[in-house]
Amino acid sequence: MNGDLLSVRGLSVSYGPVSAVRNISLRVGDGEIVALLGPNGAGKTSVLRGVTGLVPPAAGRIRMAGHRVDRPSRAVALGIAHVPEGRRVFPGLSVRDNLLLGGWAVSGHRSQLRVRQDQIFEMFPRLGERQSQLAGQLSGGEQQMLAIGRALMTEPRLLLIDELSLGLAPMVVDTLIERLVELNGAGMSLLLIEQFVHRALGIADRVYMLSKGRVVFEGTPDDATKTGAVEEAYLLGTGA
């Protein structure tokens, strides 16, 4: 297990008296794409929040490349970048400033940041064209590009992506997925939450199915389809 990039053991996340995730363990290997699936309310987002320490976990041990993760700034420093649900770009700041802040945690040198920023503009030329516009004025797809770009500014080893395709046109999603696969090809690991199950199954190496705050299936996408784990998790989750 020491080869794991991210290892999560016994994670529980609660919001006040309500527990969202109970005793979950999962891992992401170096260079892997792992999908976290499950119906709404299964606790997927809570897992990501617990992993970065955004919501301090009620229990559990999170290690990134062997080091403990306990708060978001530490997570970023250890090479975890988080593309949050709903994108959460800073609407009143320009595209450039959004990216600049993305790199705050890792580098003080403006020249270094500019190099990285140019790489991101290369990856998403649309962002380059709109670099001095306010992020709040971008379209949904452009904002998602910006959110990914902002996360990439820290040159992470692991990218957490929450609901990549939420509210986006299918063509835009295709482009984004293409970029993510390229990043993965360059060695970056991905842990992603995605509502379009088959899209996620198409690119993932491994899959975790969550239901009611617990892992109900772990395995390859093929197994997930064959054993009917997907249908089962979603049906259980809706209480039908």
Partner: peptide, 30 residues
């Protein structure tokens, strides 16, 4: 947004509405 532990749905009781109307609160279909 979506997700969020699904715990924090805010419901405000505004006072009486039409007698006999009951709203079943369902959260994201779950």
């Amino acid at each position: 947004g979506n997700g969020n532990g699904k715990a924090h749905v805010r419901v405000r009781v505004l006072g009486e509405a039409v007698p006999g109307t009951f709203v079943r609160l369902r959260v994201h279909g779950a």
